[in-house]
Amino acid sequence: MKKTITVVLSALAIVLAGCGKAPEAKKLSVFCWSEYIPQSVIDQFTKETGIQVSVENYASNEEMLAKLTAGGGQYDIIQPSEYVVEALIAQNLLHPIDKNKIPNLSNIAPQFLKLSFDPENKFSVPFMAGTVGIVINTELIKDDIKGFADVFKPQNQGKIVVLDDAREITAWALLSLGIPINELSDANLEKVKPVLANWLPLVKVFDSDSPKTALLNGDVAVGVVWGGEGAILLQSNPKFRWVIPAEGTHLFIDSLAIPKTAKNVENAEAFMNFILRPDISQKISDAFPYTNPNLAARKLLTEDQLQNKASFPSDADIAKMQTFRDIGTQGSKIDEIVTSLKAR
């Protein structure tokens, strides 16, 4: 009995001790995707600047958004995708960046700067970019696939993996109709419905986290996946081929931004500048085969990395891609449409 009480009390003591850490002067609180910023990069930042970094992780933009808007924590750096940056700017939730503190911004290729979601890069800097494209297992599919229309054909029924992301899927359908991907009016959604009604029953697997698994296991033969997933597949086996959809596709830009509630803005800016340093950016590219927007860092990459078409599409291809704008309350409707067509 006494023993039990001691155990309980000591457990509670440990629990409580964890809550109240004294504030330090040199601190930075980062809220980022898990694994997206390699630990070695964070350790090096601490070593060079003496700033202690605490990291909190999430696995989707919306988890971050929900926690941030509920006032969940004091974050100095967040890592939103482009359309979330736009939404946060519109709601006046981001702190403007002092660009004089971030000279390394000049390393970024111009095609990733001053985009519609943050026209002056007042609030965000690009961290990593990427595309959505088609991966084909050439051992199983002999047809020439050029775009979405060739993927979603009856003969490919049960052989397709796509991202489990209603907004992405809807964007592809819009592209196949020649409509820009951000024009998600109710009228356009009506036009998209019949396309999706034809497409979705052909799909075998919906997976946003690791669509490569179904392709690697041979359960499906073709996939519409993130560029980084494609890059890993291309590395793993020459039978996989990467195609940028002829209809055009989505270019996503994961950014770094400072929330309005941040307490250590200067440290956050120092962190941004650090991330944009060529040698640091190269480390991130080594861990994540996405499209590195940092031209100075690209010079440090190996020939193999640069030749990977899924990581680095040509400038001509990128020019044809579109970024997501914030669509506000339409998201709920898109989810409903995709759910209803799945649940048949």
Binding site: E62, A66, A166, V205, F206, D207, T329, S332, I334
Partner: peptide
């Protein structure tokens, strides 16, 4: 359900999760 079923069978938990997150519609 989504990992082993391929996500082709929406479940009520998934629907609520998606409306809460990607749908950004907490009230619904």
């Amino acid at each position: 359900t989504s990992l082993m079923g391929g996500g082709t069978n929406p479940t009520i938990g998934e629907v609520i999760f998606k409306q809460f997150t990607s749908g950004r519609n907490q009230p619904f």
